[in-house]
Write a protein that binds this DNA or RNA. Structure first.
Lengths: 164, 164
DNA sequence: TCAATATAATCAGACGTCTGTCGATTAGCC
DNA sequence: GGCTAATCGACAGACGTCTGATTATATTGA
C-alpha cells in the first residue's frame, strides 16, 4: 500500500497526466482498443465501420462527402475506401456527370457486414459507458459533444451536421 | 434555418455521432490539431513532449519505463525516442548493470526545448478548456480521469501511477 | 551448470491520421 | 471558345499506434 508521499516519491506524471490532451489521447487509445476487441471476428475498425454506416444511411455518396460527414481527412478517407473496395464491401462507380467523382455504394456483403457489426458496436458503447453511472454517462457525452462542436469550425475538416 | 425534419432530411450521423467512441476520436483529433498548431514553431508533437517532460522530471529512465509511465506502446516509444535522439534532444547510453537497457537522458538542447515548450503547452490546455465554464471543465476532466483509470488495467499498457 | 522464464529492445507489417502536391476535370468569367 | 479558379482524388512522406516475431540479456530454479 505505498501511500506515503513521505519518502518524496515523485509522480512523474504530475502536471501532465491531468491535462485534457493527455486524458483524451488515453481515452482514445482505450476506446479504439475496445472497438477492435469487440469487432475482432469481423475484422473491422471503427473508421471502416463509420464508412459502412454512413453509406448504409445515405445510399450512395462520393469520397469527399463521406470525409465531411465523418470528419475524416480526404487522404484517410481515400485509404479506407480503397481498403473496403478491396474487400468487396463497397463498389466505386464513376460518376457520369462529374468524372472526377466516384460514387460509392455498399455491396450486399457490405450491407451484411454492417448489419452483423451493429450489435457488436452497441456492445462497445455499453462497455465504454459502463464505468459511469447513467447520469455521468449523460454528462460525459454532453460535454464531449459541446467540446467537439465548439472546435468544429476551427478544424481542418469540420463536420457537416444538419443539426447545426 | 433548415429546421424542419418535415422534408425527411436525414441526419446521416444520427446514431453514430453521439457514440462515445466517435466523440472521443473527434476530440482527440481536435486536441492533436491544437497542440500541433500551438507548438508548430518548436516542431514538436504531444507525444514527443510527453517524453521530454517525463525525462525532465525523472532525470533518467529506460525506454520501457517511459512507455509505462506515459501509456505508450513499446514500439511507439522506440520510434519516438529514436526520433528525439536523432534531433539530439536526448542521449541514449548503455546501462552498465543491464546491457539490455539504454538509459535515456535529456541533453541541454532537450532541456531548453522542453522549457520553451511549456508555456505553449499551457496555452493548449487553456484553449482546450476555453469552451467550457470552469465548472464544466472540472467535471470534464474528472470524468475523463475516471474513464481512463477504470480501463487502465484492461489496456495493453496500463499506466503506472504512483497515486494508485 | 543448464534450462526455462522473463524482460528490453528491435524489426516488420498494418492501419489511421495529417500535410502537401499534382493532375484531371469542371465551372465561372471574359 | 478559352483562360482561370475551384474541386476531386491520387500519391508521397511523415508520425503515432498497435500486433506479432525475433534477438539479446537477466534471472530463477531444477
Amino acid at each position: 500500500m505505498r501511500k506515503k508521499p513521505r519518502t518524496r516519491e515523485i509522480d512523474p506524471l504530475q502536471g501532465l497526466g491531468d491535462r485534457p490532451g493527455f486524458l483524451i489521447r488515453r481515452a482514445h487509445q482505450i476506446s479504439q482498443a475496445v472497438f477492435i476487441e469487440e469487432c475482432a471476428r469481423l475484422d473491422i475498425t471503427a473508421t471502416q465501420f463509420g464508412v459502412l454506416w454512413i453509406l448504409s444511411r445515405a445510399g450512395e455518396l462520393d469520397q469527399i462527402s463521406i470525409a465531411r460527414l465523418l470528419g475524416f481527412d480526404r487522404s484517410t478517407t481515400g485509404l479506407v475506401v480503397s481498403l473496403l473496395e478491396k474487400r468487396a464491401l463497397i463498389t466505386r462507380l464513376p460518376n457520369k456527370s462529374d468524372r472526377r467523382r466516384h460514387v460509392l455504394r455498399l455491396t450486399k456483403a457490405g450491407e451484411d457486414l454492417k448489419r452483423r457489426a451493429e450489435p457488436l458496436v452497441d456492445r462497445v458503447r455499453v462497455r465504454l459507458e459502463s464505468v459511469f453511472t447513467r447520469r455521468e454517462a449523460k454528462i460525459f457525452l454532453r460535454l464531449l459533444d459541446k467540446f467537439t462542436r465548439s472546435f468544429d469550425e476551427t478544424t481542418r475538416v469540420p463536420l457537416r451536421r444538419p443539426k447545426g
